Simulated assay, not measured.
Amino acid sequence: METLIRKAEILIEALPYIQKLYGKTVVIKYGGNAMISEELKNSVMEDITLLKFIGVNPVIVHGGGPDISKALKLHNVESKFINGLRVTDEQTMEVAQMVLVGKTNKEIVSLLNCKGGKAIGFSGIDGRLIECEKYKTTVNGEDIDIGFVGKITKINTKMLELVTRDEYIPVIAPIGVDKDGQSYNINADTVAGAVAAALKAEKMMLLTDVEGIKYSKDSEEVIYEAAIEEIHKLLNDGIITGGMIPKVLGCIEALEQGVNRTHIIDGRIPHCILLEIFTNKGIGTMIRK
């Protein structure tokens, strides 16, 4: 009986959060170890399906770094990263598009459908969902060409709005297209931020392989809540580096364009999405305006 009462208490704790999010859009970037472990895959898909059935509108943006690296290795192509972004030559672009659109996206759609959801897969090419131009990163003050990596210029939301208002869950592969029809690889965290901003989502959640943002490189203490100015200071001090840079920049862009809250959470924890959204303490780092 005590166990049953505790379960009821958990549901009651979640009630105000369910009420607040009812009818709202939550953008979830799915990546990291949660895409590799079968247990975590199922956990994430169950969380997303539950959100849809209680009246929340989840929109999924997925990565696929490990799958791309594995496919490139089979083609004897070395993976290189600069500022957390994959250097993408023509061959790498072909492999990335093949893996993200043809393999990873459809696997996620299939998993959600098996859980009782109704998922539809998109890439940024479909309906020109993600328009972009060539992106150059900066190293020591110099612009560096990293190949077919895109900088988002526009998210065309009409298709997503139609789908999310209905009973479907959109699943987006982070491939964009320029005005000439050339495809570009885009960091999934960046896409999630832009999609969340364009949809004026209530929340954006980035699933990662770390506990959250920490106060220093040697610190074990996670920052559970931070404002944008605090994140800028951590960037300027060199505490936030590598793959975490596009994550926090995506969060900042989303917040500045109307998203209410952004979250960087540990995707290695089963049911991490529900724990972050529907419990008083939550997990990971929440970034606010």
Rank of each mutant, 00 (worst) to 15 (best):
L4A: 11
R6T: 15
R6Q: 15
K7Y: 14
I12Q: 03
I12L: 13
L15F: 06
P16I: 08
P16F: 12
Q19W: 05
K20E: 15
Y22N: 13
T25D: 10
V26N: 01
G31E: 01
G31V: 03
G32M: 01
N33F: 05
A34V: 02
S37N: 07
S37M: 02
K41W: 02
V44D: 00
E46Q: 14
L50C: 04
I54D: 02
P58K: 00
V59E: 02
V59W: 01
G64L: 08
S69Q: 12
K73N: 10
E78A: 08
K80V: 15
K80M: 14
N83I: 05
N83Y: 00
R86F: 13
V87I: 15
T88K: 10
E90L: 15
Q91W: 09
T92I: 15
M93W: 04
M93R: 15
E94R: 13
A96Q: 08
A96E: 07
A96F: 10
T104R: 05
K106H: 13
E107W: 02
E107S: 09
V109M: 06
L111I: 04
N113V: 11
N113R: 06
C114P: 00
K115A: 10
A119I: 03
I120K: 01
I120T: 09
F122W: 02
D126R: 06
G127D: 08
I130W: 10
I130K: 06
C132Y: 04
E133V: 13
Y135G: 00
T137A: 05
G141D: 13
D143L: 14
G150N: 08
T153R: 10
K154W: 07
I155Y: 04
I155N: 04
T157R: 05
K158A: 14
E167D: 12
Y168N: 13
Y168A: 09
V171Y: 01
V171R: 00
A173W: 09
A173T: 09
I175Q: 05
I175S: 05
V177F: 07
K179H: 09
K179S: 15
D180R: 00
G181S: 00
S183F: 09
N185I: 14
N185K: 10
I186Q: 05
N187G: 03
A194I: 04
V195P: 07
A198C: 04
A201T: 10
E202K: 08
K203Y: 09
M204P: 02
L206Y: 11
L206C: 10
D209E: 06
E211G: 03
K214E: 10
S219D: 11
E220R: 03
Y224M: 14
A226G: 12
A226R: 04
A227E: 12
I228M: 10
I228T: 13
I231K: 04
H232I: 14
H232W: 15
K233Y: 05
T241E: 14
T241I: 14
T241H: 11
G242M: 08
G242N: 15
M244T: 06
I245C: 00
I245E: 01
V248T: 07
L249N: 11
A254L: 09
A254N: 06
E256Q: 11
V259G: 03
R261Q: 12
H271Q: 13
H271D: 11
H271R: 14
C272Y: 02
C272K: 01
C272S: 15
I277N: 00
T279Y: 12
N280P: 01
K281D: 14
K281M: 12
I283G: 03
R288E: 02
R288Q: 03
